[in-house]
């Protein structure tokens, strides 16, 4: 062994000289890189067998990059250290390591994201929730404004459509009766969801292609017209025949009688059930999310799937509740106003 050592000694010394020479030629960085790779490998090995202290000290030995940078070893090592410190419940230390990276590379995305989420983690719950709200609000409001558009449109269109369907149903003219009967029978008798699918996905088969918004407006408009038609019809039929007779005896035509005498008297009776339908409408607009419309529910769902954060669902619920409360309040006011003649 000693002999051979001696033998090798000479050639070893030669080799050492060669190595020294090589090192002089190769840039110092290159040497450091080779060194760093080895360190990282050792450190990872130490991590796999659970020697965390060892791993930390090895990562720590990875030097800061020279003026020409390195191949990412420094960033890797410091971020590993930051994560280890964080998992050892030492966010202060973790921040130090991440900041080391930012000092060298101010634009490093990984380190910056780490610091941001570290900031989040160390904040109190309420502040985190507030930030969630701020983050989700713009999209939710965009969705909510679409929901409001759908609701307002349907609230304007469906009483008019409903009135005509109702008048058709109580008329004595066969074709009008038939159309009204069919509309109510079909659109009250099938799910709104299915009607929306039919209008959006089914109509293109016969050459009618609609935008999601148009399909949603048509679907909601017709469906709610069919529901309101029955309420309006019941309202009209609940008015005493004496009213029609008195109007007739004055010489009023059918349409004058309806417009001036009968329909105004139905308001008080039909507004509570219509308000009920409109409250249901606010929530039914969520169904149009199935035909590629981004309204409140869809916006909330998208963000929930992206962040898996329940806050966004709670926010959506609150917005729906605000809508229904405001509309309930408005309808109560209207109901009071149209019934004023019944109070002594």
């Amino acid at each position: 062994m000693i002999n051979s050592n001696n033998k090798l000694g000479k050639s070893g010394a030669f080799a050492s000289l060669f190595l020294l020479f090589a090192l002089l030629i190769f840039p110092a960085v290159s040497l450091a890189a080779v060194d760093a790779d080895a360190l990282l490998k050792q450190a990872r090995d130490a991590l796999t067998i659970g020697q965390i202290d060892q791993a930390q000290s090895l990562f720590n030995q990875v030097p800061a990059p020279g003026p020409d940078g390195d191949d990412g070893q420094f960033v890797y090592s410091r971020m590993q250290l930051a994560r280890i410190s964080y998992s050892m419940k030492d966010p202060g230390k973790a921040r130090e390591y991440a900041e080391q990276v930012v000092v060298v590379y101010p634009d490093n995305v990984e380190a910056k994201n780490f610091l941001t989420s570290l900031d989040r983690e160390t904040k109190p719950e309420w502040q985190k929730t507030l930030e969630d709200c701020k983050r989700f609000m713009p999209n939710l409001l965009k969705g909510a404004s679409m929901t409001l558009l759908l609701v307002f449109f349907t609230m304007i269109v469906s009483p008019i459509g409903g009135l005509f369907i109702a008048l058709g149903k109580i008329s004595r003219m066969q074709p009008f009766m038939a159309i009204s009967w069919f509309t109510i029978w079909f659109f009250r008798g099938t799910p709104l969801l299915l009607q929306l699918f039919f209008i959006y996905y089914g109509l293109p088969a016969i050459g009618i292609t609609l935008s999601p918004l148009a399909a949603a407006l048509i679907g909601l408009g017709i469906n709610y017209s069919a529901y309101l038609a029955e309420i309006i019809r019941a309202g009209i039929e609940s008015i005493d025949d004496g009213q029609t007779e008195a109007a007739k005896a004055l010489g009023m035509t059918y349409s004058q009688t309806m417009r001036r005498v009968i329909i105004p008297q139905t308001y008080k009776r039909i507004i509570p059930p219509i308000a009920n339908e409109f409250i249901a409408l606010i929530k039914d607009t969520a169904l149009v999310s199935t035909i590629a419309m981004v309204e409140l529910m869809r916006a909330a769902d998208q963000m929930f799937n992206a962040y898996f954060n329940v806050t966004v669902l709670v926010m959506a619920a609150v917005i729906y509740l605000i809508f229904t409360s405001v509309f309930t309040f408005i309808f109560e006011k209207i109901e009071y106003k149209v019934g004023v003649y019944e109070r002594r």
Partner: peptide
């Protein structure tokens, strides 16, 4: 309607328009 407007009628149940 033209005929009826020339003949006034008063009903047993008055039939006033309650909303006016």
């Amino acid at each position: 309607c033209a005929l009826r407007s020339e003949i006034g009628m008063v009903f047993q149940q008055f039939n006033l328009f309650p909303h006016m």
